[in-house]
Computed example of a mutant assay.
Amino acid sequence: MTTTILDKKQIAHKIKRIAFQIYETNVDEKEVVIAGIVSNGFTLAKMIKKEVEKISPIKVLLCEVVIDKKNPIRQIETSLKKEEYQNKSLILVDDVLHSGTTLIYGVKHFLDVPLKQFKTAVLVDRNHKKYPIKADFKGISLSTSLSENVSVIFEKNNYSAILE
């Protein structure tokens, strides 16, 4: 049995709210980096970028972050060179914060470079963290059992977050 947690309209509202929070946190910045973890995190990052640019004068640099979710200690690849995000405000984005493994390894990767500010954003925070990581910006917090799974689906013109 699946339950819809967020429908397309609700996801759009959450993205808009996250964009406003990013703007408020970076109101004095001319440019920020939004780094999305492949694949849904990057899709979400693109949506957030569009909203931030709609509501603010901030220029958003988009960065794709490739992490092997099954083996996160492997080399992490990014579409931007370190010099391109160094000394900037960076927001690391993923769709769902499950155990925190993917996010913590993503954070670790970016800590090799001096940043002005570092925040994290997720659409769904499951509250089952294995690592001491939190989402600074989140669409929804959800207490689930470990046997339940949360999936975010980004299909053309149809988005949803479901509990399975």
Rank of each mutant, 00 (worst) to 15 (best):
E51S: 02
H98F: 13
L103T: 11
S39N: 14
G106T: 12
T78C: 11
I67Y: 10
N26E: 00
E24H: 15
N87Q: 07
E31Y: 07
L62W: 02
Q21T: 02
P57R: 11
S99F: 08
T78F: 12
D94N: 04
D68V: 08
S39E: 11
I22Q: 05
K54W: 04
E84S: 06
G100L: 12
V33R: 12
E29I: 00
S99K: 00
L90F: 06
Q75E: 14
V60F: 05
E77H: 13
V32G: 06
K14W: 01
K49M: 13
T43N: 00
K14A: 09
V27I: 13
A19H: 03
P72Y: 08
I55A: 12
N40H: 15
K14Y: 02
R17V: 03
N71Y: 12
I55M: 11
T25M: 01
N87F: 10
D28W: 05
Y105P: 01
K49V: 07
I104P: 04
T43W: 01
I104W: 09
G36P: 14
P72C: 09
H13P: 00
V27P: 04
G36H: 03
E83D: 13
I58V: 13
K81P: 00
K69P: 02
T43R: 08
T43Q: 03
D94L: 00
G41C: 08
N71D: 14
K30D: 00
G106Q: 08
E77R: 03
M47Y: 05
S79L: 05
K59H: 15
F20I: 02
E84R: 07
S79Q: 08
K69F: 09
V27N: 05
I76N: 10
I76R: 11
I67N: 10
L92H: 09
K81A: 15
E77C: 01
V27R: 15
G36N: 02
C63H: 12
L44K: 00
A45F: 10
Y105V: 03
M47W: 00
V65Q: 09
R74N: 15
I67Q: 11
E64P: 01
K30L: 01
N71I: 14
V107K: 12
I104K: 14
E84G: 11
K69Y: 13
F20R: 12
K70A: 14
I34L: 10
I34V: 15
V96W: 07
K14S: 08
T101R: 15
N87W: 01
G106H: 06
E84V: 09
I55E: 01
D94R: 02
K82N: 08
K88H: 09
I104E: 02
K108Y: 11
S39C: 02
P72A: 09
I76K: 09
K81D: 13
S79V: 06
G106D: 11
G100I: 13
I15K: 09
V38Q: 15
Y85T: 05
K59Q: 06
L92R: 07
S89G: 03
E29C: 03
L62Y: 07
T102M: 09
N40A: 05
K49C: 13
I91A: 00
L44Y: 11
Q86L: 02
E84A: 13
V52M: 08
G36M: 11
Y105I: 10
V65I: 10
I34P: 04
S99Q: 04
I73H: 08
I104T: 14
I55Y: 11
E24W: 13
V96N: 08
I15D: 00
N87Y: 10
